[in-house]
């Protein structure tokens, strides 16, 4: 993971040395966040659940921080993910098939975000 950082050259290390992986995941979270937020606001206006709009905000913040190489992205996402679990359990309990769309994809993102921790730590050094 660390090789590429050196490959990028030291010139940029001071200003924009965010690892490409963090940028990539950050941008992905922003894109997903935009979709969830926009759709979520629409849903809420139709009288539906507020979860999606809120989760969209969580993802937008996560993405923003990650893309800037900030560890706060991880913390924000953890909060979003735990919030998602609580909401999902509140909505459908132990109906595992019903949990699938609610929990699987967010957990995959959680794993990706957690994998960024070493990279984000490196930046701080």
């Amino acid at each position: 993971m660390t090789h590429s950082i050196y490959n990028e050259g030291t010139h940029f290390e001071e200003r924009r040395h965010t690892h490409w992986a963090a940028v990539f995941i950050g941008v992905l979270c922003v894109l997903l966040g935009i979709v969830l937020f926009a759709g979520g606001v629409w849903l809420a206006m139709l009288g539906g659940s507020w979860y999606y709009a809120l989760a969209g905000i969580g993802l937008l913040l996560t993405g923003w921080f990650l893309a800037r190489g900030l560890m706060s992205g991880v913390y924000v996402y953890l909060v979003t993910w735990v919030g998602t679990l609580i909401w999902a359990y509140w909505e459908v309990g132990t109906d595992w098939w019903a949990q699938v769309p609610r929990v699987v994809a967010p957990t995959v993102i959680l794993i990706l975000v957690l994998l960024l921790i070493p990279v984000l730590r490196h930046r701080r050094r």
Partner: peptide
């Protein structure tokens, strides 16, 4: 339902 929160959201809408 759906495969992710996004398509689930679409169906909820």
């Amino acid at each position: 339902w759906g495969f992710s929160p996004i398509d689930q959201l679409w169906c909820r809408i």
